[in-house]
Design a protein around this nucleic acid. Structure first.
Lengths: 319, 319
DNA sequence: GTAGAAGATGAAAAGCATTTCATGTCAAGC
DNA sequence: GCTTGACATGAAATGCTTTTCATCTTCTAC
């Protein structure tokens, strides 16, 4: 394909002039501009973007690290990021990690390689220090509580939200409260477990391992929770569920088994995804799309610091 | 940051030798290899990938054109693509189009620019001719019935599936069958409308505009459908719903209004997403993730032709 | 009338790695 | 002793665009 040199030759001008026309710089006479444009059309010229990237040292690409895009939670964040990226003329590179450190590292290497101009970490498994090391190569921002690290973050105080939810259920008369987590080792899970333990201490109640259900991530993970519940001597009367999807799965199985919600089992979920609205699930509103947009803006501006996103409970019919 | 020239200088070898070490070419003596590796470590060298892209004319990036990633349907396809991409060492550029032609065109331009090595079109609004024009710049593959065009495709015969579903409902005694569509102008919607019209002709039944519900895309679009149904003099007794999400929304509203499914309203949906499994929705299994993987393989291999993906109905409890 | 600014243009450097081609060494084989 | 092939190495070309610097012209203002 034709390159800028060819165009210069065809139009009878220098390469510089062609570049000026392409980039809209001033100081090009109308006649030459037209000649260049004509030549470009004639030769079906298209700028080789990789040469531009090389010389500019930027690519207009932002990396998004997500464990799995099929989880609506992340899909919503990415949607928010994508909308903002579009508005700013950036493209996104999707890096699906499945929580494997090696893949997370590869995303960081892309930053060092200058293949991406910045990196948005939606969730991760490696320690913060790995990310801090790469901070010098380009902006990174995380959607996870990174306070205490040098990685800028936009986060939700899960300790506070969980505490609020627990108190709410307690006030509604629930004395045995269980909860569902995704990965036990995740940052937010650890905060939630801490909130749970502190709550129990405050209420002088014993911690019971049987009340925590982990690895509940997808809608189909809800059913088994209900079955385990039914097998218990003293099952919890309320469940805090860290994802609307799982809550929907629980709700569906409860209906099948004619276990009344909220009479027999109360549910408080998180995210306020459309599904929760439709099913009337009491949940914490987390503005995932807006958070996505914020993440994008922050990574572009390269700002430091940690921003908390407030969440609030939306009462519907499951408590 | 250090470049290959610096490394060559530090290691006391030529640039070529450094390049050989980096790329694992043979014919490098052990002593020089070590010297180069030492120099690379010392100078914290990282290859500038954009220079590599420039000279190779490839980027290891595949573009994915999706209208909106937050729709689970597309998220699942992308998940499948991403898994396969990872296996093959490719990265993905997400191009969210929102069905705007300008953005679709921009994705095509990326192919021409050589910013991406290939393009997967999950759904689109522009005509095929636009895509055909760009076929010369790199492989394109579409997840949409492109028979009759030169764009390779992996597709589902929606005419056939719809016909099968209609006959099934007819055999179950339904005489008034309505259906929900996403965008009316989409390729699959047109095929489905055709199937519906042909079905009515075959059964000597009149076409009634009030039985088609369009722009139903998300889970929250289900409720309004039920409300419109209740307002009708002679509402359909069965609904074909082109997405599990919408079917879930319909089901939820039916329960709220105590409209028994399937006694008062039967539902057949499409996709067989996890949500449909959990809610016991009768639906057509479309292996979206596998299709994603297939799309990726095809775009890599640059194969032509059209491949039909067979679908089959899964009977659950909504008919 | 002249200094200085503004406008116009192009040569060349810079950005960086890969690959081809040329050259040289050494050992095996006849 | 000489040819041939395998192994080693580097100079230079290649991929393509942006940007700096230098040069030249043409006004404008005093």
């Amino acid at each position: 394909m034709a390159n800028i040199k060819d165009i210069a030759r065809i139009a009878g001008v220098s390469i510089t002039t062609v570049s000026r026309v392409i980039n809209g710089h001033p100081y090009v006479s109308e006649s030459k501009r037209e000649a260049v444009l004509r030549a470009m059309k004639e030769a079906d010229y298209e700028r080789n973007i990789n040469a531009v990237h090389l010389i500019k040292g930027r690519t207009g690409l932002i990396g998004i690290m997500v464990p799995s895009i099929k989880r609506p939670y992340f899909a919503l964040v990415v949607e928010g990021i994508a909308e903002e990226a579009l508005r700013r003329g950036y493209k996104l590179v999707l890096i699906q990690t499945d929580y494997e450190e090696e893949r997370e590292l590869e995303a960081l290497r892309m930053l060092k390689h200058k293949q991406i101009d910045g990196l948005i970490v939606c969730s991760k498994t490696s320690g913060w220090s790995a990310f801090e090391t790469y901070l010098e190569y380009g902006p990174i921002v995380a959607f996870e509580d990174a306070r205490g690290s040098r990685v800028p973050s936009i986060f939700i105080d899960h300790y506070r939200a969980f505490t609020e939810a627990l108190d709410y259920l307690w006030d509604k008369g629930h004395r045995r409260i269980g909860f569902c987590l995704a990965r036990r080792s995740g940052t937010s899970s650890r905060q939630r477990i801490e909130a749970y333990r502190d709550f129990l201490i405050r209420k002088r109640r014993p911690f019971e391992e049987s009340c925590v259900f982990d690895d509940t991530i997808h809608v189909e993970d809800g059913g088994p929770v209900v079955e385990r519940l039914l097998d218990m001597q003293h099952p919890p009367t309320a469940l805090l569920v860290t994802s609307d999807q799982v809550a929907a799965g629980i709700l569906a199985r409860c209906r099948e088994l004619e276990l009344e919600v909220p009479r027999r089992l109360a549910l408080v979920a998180f995210d306020d995804q459309p599904l929760a609205r439709v099913l009337g699930i009491t949940t914490f509103a987390i503005p995932l799309q807006e958070i996505g947009a914020k993440l994008f803006r922050q990574v572009l501006e390269g700002g430091a610091g940690h921003t908390e996103i407030p969440v609030r409970m939306i009462e519907r019919g499951t408590v």
